[in-house]
């Protein structure tokens, strides 16, 4: 999309986000990581087939999904911890009053 130099390989291969995709898949506990793996696959297949603009677009998309998985994972994790603590404190208070 950005690069208009069709036919000419850009100096650098766009980042395929594959390792980051694997990490969010394993550690962010959300199936969103699979979406970024699919995009990583498109970065490689498009770049290797000579579709450099397509590879760039897929790279952007892969990065977007890695970030979404990462931040949603962290946010839900923090909400989980807060709920756990609140329930724990609540149970403790109830226990001490009854």
């Amino acid at each position: 999309m950005e690069s208009q130099n069709f036919g000419q390989p850009p100096a650098f291969r766009p980042k395929n986000w594959l390792v980051e995709s694997i990490l969010v898949t394993i550690f962010c506990c959300l199936p969103l990581g699979i979406v970024s793996i699919v995009n990583a696959a498109q970065v490689n297949s498009r770049y290797n087939a000579g579709d450099y603009a397509g590879a760039q677009a897929a790279s952007k998309e892969a990065g977007k999904w890695v970030k979404i998985a990462f931040f949603v994972g962290i946010a839900l994790g923090v909400i989980g911890i807060v709920l756990n603590v609140l329930i724990g404190v609540g149970a403790g208070l109830l226990g001490s009053f009854s």
């Binding site: 506990c29 989980g80 724990g88």
Partner: peptide, 22 residues
């Protein structure tokens, strides 16, 4: 310890995602 975050996907669906147990 219960303060570790639980997998939201597992909590919602009861299924294991590829990251459950990590």
């Amino acid at each position: 310890y219960s303060f570790f975050p639980q997998c939201p996907f597992h909590v919602l669906t009861g299924l294991d995602c590829p990251g459950c147990g990590s």
